[in-house]
Design a protein around this nucleic acid. Sequence first.
DNA 1: CCAATATAATTAGTGTACAAAATAATTATA
DNA 2: TATAATTATTTTGTACACTAATTATATTGG
Lengths: 144, 144
Amino acid sequence: MVKEMCYKLNRSSMLYKRLMSKHLDRLNITYSQLMVLRVASQEPGITAKEILMQMDTDKATLSGVLARLERDNYIYRVKNEKDKRIQNIFVSEGSEKLCTEVSIIEKACISDLIKGITDEEAENFIAILDRFIENQVLKIEENF
Amino acid sequence: MVKEMCYKLNRSSMLYKRLMSKHLDRLNITYSQLMVLRVASQEPGITAKEILMQMDTDKATLSGVLARLERDNYIYRVKNEKDKRIQNIFVSEGSEKLCTEVSIIEKACISDLIKGITDEEAENFIAILDRFIENQVLKIEENF
DNA sequence: CCAATATAATTAGTGTACAAAATAATTATA
DNA sequence: TATAATTATTTTGTACACTAATTATATTGG
């Protein structure tokens, strides 16, 4: 039962990435990059560490994503003078526009995915998923 | 709402892979490899094409997974004489044992994940997830 | 029979996830 | 003040997902 749940969660996640990337290709940005860009645009001067805390991803992965965002001029980084280990991250001009543009695409992209699922069902679904995720986090922490 | 669902599905999927890979590390096999090995062990002489049809993954990805499974002696491949484009896949001795061993680990690993979720809730959850996945598949096909 | 087409599988290239190690700068401690 | 520990980030190495292109073989229509 749980095995089935896990398998299907994985499958759904894979399908979502496949679907989104098809649409994002045209804008020359990936889903992961976009997620980071969104967080960064909310808080000018944010550091990699702070992004990490908000996103529960891996620091090495984030490092790569930031490098590619910088390479493609979506963000720029400024060395912090007080603490030279830190770089402050700022989104470039136009990145904000890109974010809203993507939001529109995302809406269109996911609009049909709730077909045949009522609001109540979706709510119950999310509630159970939340509990499941909580259990997963606990289990991971317990196995350090 | 759907956006929240998608985000959480991704997160749960990521956590599951993280959790499983921690346990599988000891056995020197990855989750993807295991999934393929399981399918292959069900049907001796299966071809890559047939595995693909059962698993909805990418043929290039599968090619890599099979190469690593062969490299580590979990499977071996025999050129088909009738159609030389095809290789028939067989699992090596001991792979069956590995599969059952992993099943035990998997059970222990996911046992706590349903805590606080009743059987009925899990059933409803899977039913909605199935509908959601169906919609995703439709949407992907529609955007070719 | 042969050129066009289809099929099975691999290769090359990009991006992502994660572990482990390295680097560089800061802070705590003896 | 020298040394140790911690922190922020990058680098390295492995595995995957996906796209596009390629290789090798089979099949088909003229």
